[in-house]
Design a protein around this nucleic acid. Structure first.
Lengths: 332, 332
DNA sequence: CTGTTAGCGCCTTCAC
DNA sequence: GTGAAGGCGCTAACAG
């Protein structure tokens, strides 16, 4: 389309639009912002001119005037800053950064120490912060979210009365997975959990326990984490404690891979002797031997929803859980 | 210590500092900014007050006045928007977002279509953009980087006269890898390359060819990509064309995993019959069977360097290549 | 309905 | 050296 063209140094401002349209800056602003206190002809004229000139409001000036910020902070809770290196965090930040781009807001990444919630106060006090996306929050942290952040904070994971939550339905996912294992003849199913301090994975553990209970089967829970090492250690421990285990449900794919490594090392066949399942469906899960049976985790969708909600400033339902779907491969 | 405390709605402004210190806003500004046209006592007083009050300049107002932006755009070139989903992109954005946080600037993520460089003009025209980090740029794209972006754009990958580049020394890494394969007795070494359109991986291919040439061995190049599927297809093709291949050098770990899957399917033992090497040392590479021999790729360091350079606005050497180190495991 | 006037918080000429 | 004043681009109060 003719191209917005080469204009090197020509920041088109509201002033330009107003002049060209023969109205005041205020009217032009109202017209473009969608206020209804503008006459239709004026609005249309201003909009036409803006479109023709390729005018785009400066997010900075707008934010300064409105008192809103220009960045979206993604704060990842955890015992140490390495949580920032996680691939999961990367996917969340990626999605948020793509959402924010349209509104001219960028994303910042922070580590939120579990035992030092002062970070939340700093975020709340920072005028450049438009909103906050909390990742892996704990109940303790949620309780300390400053009032001033209300309405512009969303948690990916657990929520609270004041902080809406967006997450995957990991309880449902876990239940489905356990049902699949039972359905394929497994009876002595162990679970390697996520990190102790992280409440949102406890939903999975609960679902695992409940589903087994209904089937009259015993629960076998081993503490874990999100790293392959945790799966290695967890699987070793599970098999030492319950040598007749015939299935291992891992909290995520990395842990499942670690578990498979442990079983291989013990001379146990997967899935012949012991079935192993993951969770997340990361790209590489499909390529190991055996290919991992797992469940989808629409991180992009979740993060996009969270970021959009924070940016839009609209009310969000207190809980949004996206469904997880079984991905059947070879390991279980 | 005592804590920055509870102050709910008390945005401390330069005005407050000036008043408390008994100077004008201008002087306070100069004092805090480090200008040398301020008397020492005035400077110290202003600084003390600022520290006591916990004053932090508003990045927005500062950027508006200075005409700089508040966000760092990470633009990922590629044939389609799925490049944004890559884990590599996630690591880059993560690192950039962590760097920007300290300066109050956020990161935005954009896809840059290979055939439609107008995206660069839009970025250049956007006053909210502080700087640009280009990922996977092509020479064609680099040639179209607007002048106005000069000095605030860095490329991760290939660079140009006007755009400094930061990347891994993948030529050196590839050479080392080939040398390792030769050193362990491999003689018929095939390579599965990255995407055709991506120039920075051609450095690897060149190094691969050169190293083989010096050893008097033939090169066997198969086109690839960055996904495991590309490795699957590439390995099949390589073995069909050169059935006596005894090593496969993959452009990245994902491709290596795909290649291993292909070899397994063909009944070829790894590393018994054919050695396979990856590149990147992603966490999961260690957990497959066989564990992947690969090379490190300090993405975080690279992205941090790039983001810091863009934010700092200081001159950067035209090329910075971080070394890659061999990670010996079982597959080669 | 619209234009004029004030800021948002900061930096930066300009006089003093 | 320092203060007063102007402006970055926009929105939100006032008047008309």
């Amino acid at each position: 389309m003719a191209g917005t063209g080469g204009g090197r140094r020509a920041p088109i401002t509201l002033e330009d639009v107003a002049r060209e349209a023969g109205v005041s800056r205020a009217t032009a602003s109202r017209a473009l912002i969608g206020s209804d206190t503008v006459s239709t002809p004026a609005r249309e004229r201003a909009r036409a001119v803006a479109a023709r000139l390729g005018y785009a409001p400066d997010p900075l000036a707008r934010a300064l005037a409105a008192g809103t910020g220009t960045r979206l902070v993604v704060a990842v809770a955890g015992p140490d800053p390495t949580v920032l290196d996680d691939a999961y965090t990367g996917r969340v930040v990626n999605a948020a950064a793509a959402v924010g781009d349209r509104a001219g807001v960028g994303v910042s990444l922070q580590w939120l120490p579990l035992d030092r919630p002062a970070g939340l106060d700093r975020i709340a006090a920072d005028r450049s912060v438009h909103g906050l996306v909390l990742v892996n929050a704990t109940n303790g942290l949620l309780a300390r979210v400053p009032r001033s952040l209300r309405g512009r904070v969303v948690s990916i994971g657990v929520g609270s009365r004041d902080v809406p939550a967006v997450d995957i339905d990991n309880a449902g996912g876990a239940a489905t997975m356990v049902a699949h294992l039972i359905g394929t003849g497994r009876r002595r199913i162990a679970m390697i959990t996520g990190p102790r301090w992280l409440p949102c994975t406890s939903r999975m553990v609960e679902a695992y326990r409940a589903t087994l209970r209904e089937a009259g089967l015993p629960a076998r829970v081993v503490p874990g984490g999100f790293a392959a090492e945790d799966g290695l250690v967890g699987a070793r421990r599970a098999l030492r404690r319950w040598p007749d285990t015939d299935a291992v449900l891992a909290v995520c794919d990395a842990v499942a891979l670690g578990a498979i490594a442990a079983l291989r090392e013990l001379g146990v066949r997967v899935p012949g002797d012991v079935a192993v399942t993951g969770f997340d469906d990361v790209p590489m899960a499909a390529w190991g031997e055996p290919a991992l049976t797992t469940a989808t985790h629409p991180v992009r969708t979740i993060a996009t929803t969270a970021a959009t909600a924070v940016l839009g400033g609209e009310a969000v339902p207190p809980q949004t859980w996206y469904p997880s779907e079984l991905v059947l491969r070879a390991s279980a």
